[in-house]
């Protein structure tokens, strides 16, 4: 860059502190000539093509020629400096700590927290039921199981709601974990199917539906799985279910 001239001004002064035309463009700034506090150094650079720009820098002058040891790492040392070996706040001699504030109050707080948790825990003993969080408004597809007594039981709908998650929408099952119902010979025995639906299969993840579904619904379900996806084992009636409850 073709710099022809650099002028340096300090603070509001109209006359430059220095005008330099040759590199290195260096100025000796003596804080002794400036007042304590904030100052502005303005550097105006002029280029050969006649253009120019200026930069402003803010700096601080302090008459302090000493610093805390913890600060000497902040800049390389260039001139003799006095070092405060102890941080000023460490020398202050405040009142000794109050026994009430730092020993009694902590003990009270400790016992307070312990007491509150005890109280909650004692109260909890009398609360046997949980309060379920209603998340339907947030939920997208959580199947909810509730008895729908009275309504005509629809086997297909009941199946997709209660069973398809494990046994598959087409009764195809899932690997070695959930048996396929399609083409499953065990379904030929109507009593077995009804028992399984009512009682589940303890020790496996097959749940019991006896408490949640009515006789009509169980019958509709049993009939549905026994006669879908190529199965043809015949219908099941509500009376058959009632007999096995």
């Amino acid at each position: 860059m073709d710099i022809v001239r650099v002028e340096a001004y300090v603070d509001g002064s109209g006359a430059p502190l220095a005008t330099i035309t040759e590199p290195p463009f260096r100025l000796r700034l003596d804080p002794a000539e400036l007042g304590e506090g904030i100052h502005v150094l303005t550097v105006v650079t002029e280029y050969r093509d006649g253009s120019s720009d200026q930069h402003r820098y803010v700096f601080d002058v302090t008459r302090k020629n000493h610093t805390f040891a913890g600060h000497i790492s902040q800049a390389p040392l260039r001139a003799p400096i006095e070092v405060d070996l102890v941080d000023a706040v460490e020398i202050e001699n405040p009142a000794p700590p109050s026994v009430f504030l730092y020993a009694v109050l902590p003990l009270i707080l400790f016992l307070g927290v312990v007491a509150v948790s005890w109280w909650i825990s004692l109260r909890a003993e009398s609360r046997v039921a949980d309060q379920p969080t209603k998340i339907e408004s947030l939920a997208r597809s959580v199947a909810r199981v509730a008895p729908t007594a009275g309504a005509a039981a629809d086997g297909a709908a009941l199946y997709s709601k209660n069973c398809a998650g494990c046994h598959g929408a087409e009764g195809q099952g899932m690997g070695a974990v959930f048996p396929a119902l399609a083409g499953n010979e065990a379904l030929a025995d109507a009593g077995y199917v009804v028992d399984i639906i009512l009682e589940g299969k303890p020790g496996s993840s097959m749940p019991a539906f006896g408490d949640r579904l009515s006789d009509e619904e169980v019958a509709a379900l049993a009939g549905y799985i026994r006669n879908s996806w190529g199965n043809g084992f015949g219908p099941v009636t509500a009376a058959d279910v009632a007999a096995r409850r």
Binding site: P106, S121, R127
Partner: peptide, 26 residues
């Protein structure tokens, strides 16, 4: 004060209640 809270809160995990919600709560 922080250690007071730290120690006291530990005792909250020592209760046992039948209701699992309350148990987890503490």
């Amino acid at each position: 004060f922080d250690l007071v809270a730290l120690g006291a809160l530990y005792t909250a995990g020592m209760h046992y209640t039948v209701n699992v919600t309350m148990d987890q709560y503490l």
